[in-house]
Simulated scan of single mutants.
Amino acid sequence: MTYCVGLFLRDGLVMLGDTRTNAGVDNVSTFSKLYTTGTEGERALCLLSAGNLGVTQAVWNRLEEGVTLDDTPHTLLSVPSMFRAAQLVGAAIRAVYAADGPALKAQGLSFSASFLVGGQIKGGPPHLFLVYSAGNFIQATPDTPFLQIGEHKYGKPVITRVLTHDTSLGDGVKLGLVSMDDTMRTNLSVGLPLDLLVYRTDTLTLPPVRRIGAEDSYFAGLREGWSSRMRQTFRDLPLPEWL
């Protein structure tokens, strides 16, 4: 399993995913689920994936080779808008399903793939989409400025309590990492290292992906600080008067 989260903020995007994959308790591996592509000054796109690793990697390979959209072959470097980019990812998922879905079904395996698609193409604002296994998608908005895929339920409460569209990128990074920490503490199928990308609005430049492992001092301090403050806050809450 995995956990990936994207934050849609006024100042940009925060894209964060873990790298743990497992096919049983004795077959755990590390694979990046974050993909980037772009053209300096023209577009910057980031994808996060969850689901069957063979399926999600096949989708990414098809996107690199080209997928037909409206009778025209496209890659993420040629689509004219982020909306079209989300459509292209959906078309790639359906193409992989058409090729591999029957064989997976015959083996008793489910076709599972979902993607967070975030970025900006020159001439338009940044966008963040969640593309489902069927190829349809939804879009993050200022009212709901985050999207999640994978094992999302454990990391959602802190985001819904704190996040707004006006949250700064720095606070967004903190919030994403706290959400990830809550998930890792609860579900062993989600684990280090993490891949983090922070995109600033209108830069149209792909920043480097930061790999966060157990040795990362900031993340280690954040985990301990969050836990200790949560414990202290709980102790500071008043006891019920009727007890």
Results as ranks from 00 to 15, higher is better:
G123L: 00
V178R: 04
E224Q: 08
T205W: 00
D182Q: 15
V162W: 05
T186S: 14
V190A: 03
L196S: 08
S189K: 07
I212L: 14
P157C: 11
V198L: 01
F115W: 04
Q107Y: 04
S133M: 01
L163K: 03
Q232H: 14
L204Y: 11
K153G: 04
E215I: 08
Y199F: 11
L175M: 06
D143H: 12
T186I: 06
Y97M: 01
I159E: 00
A92Y: 09
P126I: 03
G221P: 05
E215K: 07
L169N: 04
Q232A: 15
L88P: 11
Q120P: 12
V173E: 12
S189W: 09
I138N: 06
A134G: 15
S189C: 08
P207H: 04
S228Y: 01
Y199E: 05
K174Q: 09
G124D: 01
G221N: 15
P157H: 03
R161S: 12
I212Y: 14
L116N: 01
G170E: 15
P142W: 00
G150W: 14
V131L: 02
V190H: 02
F219A: 09
A98S: 11
E224K: 14
G90W: 15
L175Y: 03
T164W: 05
F219T: 05
L188N: 11
K105M: 09
A98H: 13
L175F: 01
G119M: 05
P126T: 00
K174M: 02
A98I: 09
T164F: 06
L175H: 01
G155C: 10
Y199D: 03
V190G: 03
T141V: 10
D181K: 01
S217F: 10
L222R: 13
Q148L: 09
G150I: 12
G101M: 07
R211Q: 15
D166F: 09
V209S: 09
P193W: 07
Y199L: 13
T186R: 15
N136F: 03
L206G: 13
L175C: 01
L197V: 13
I93P: 08
L175Q: 07
V96Y: 04
L104N: 05
G191L: 13
G170A: 14
D100N: 06
K105T: 13
S179L: 08
V89R: 12
D166E: 11
A99Q: 10
L130A: 14
A106G: 02
L163A: 02
I159Q: 00
F129R: 14
A140P: 11
R231A: 15
S168H: 03
G155P: 12
F129K: 13
F111K: 03
L222I: 11
D166Y: 10
P126G: 00
H127Q: 13
R223K: 11
